[in-house]
């Protein structure tokens, strides 16, 4: 990979991403928000929520330790599971890894 090629890809990507603010301003979707919208309230308003969102919001409001433990465990389990599945897919594509020689 030459330095010239890297520079071309970098410039093209920055230009591409540079278009995002203009596109989003036209559509007024979440990309267009100029100021952070989230309020830092310690309690979530559960009136309009239902299903899984209500369950999460209640846990967040009522037991912060349980919420923190759940977040940490979910991230660990999901991270491991997704990594395992991706690994299987990569193996099937012939991208299996084993001990490598460290070439500089």
């Amino acid at each position: 990979m030459t330095f010239k090629r890297i520079a071309t890809i970098v410039i093209l990507s920055i230009t591409l991403v540079g278009a995002i603010p203009f596109i989003s301003q036209a559509e007024r979707d979440p990309l267009a928000s100029e100021k952070p919208e989230t309020a830092l309230s310690m309690k979530v308003d559960t009136k309009k929520l239902s299903g899984i969102n209500l369950f999460i919001a209640r846990m967040y409001n009522e037991d912060r330790v349980l919420y923190a433990t759940t977040v940490t465990l979910v991230m660990a389990v999901l991270g491991t599971t997704l990594a395992f599945i991706t690994d299987l897919v990569l193996k099937a594509l012939g991208l299996e890894v084993s001990k490598i020689s460290h070439r500089e």
Binding site: L78, G79, T80, L82, A83, F84, D87, V97, K99, I100
Partner: peptide
Amino acid sequence: SNIFGQTIGAVKKHQKMGN
């Protein structure tokens, strides 16, 4: 939280490669 989740798999893979 995302960093924690994504790094678990990456560490496992690098361990396998002896890194």
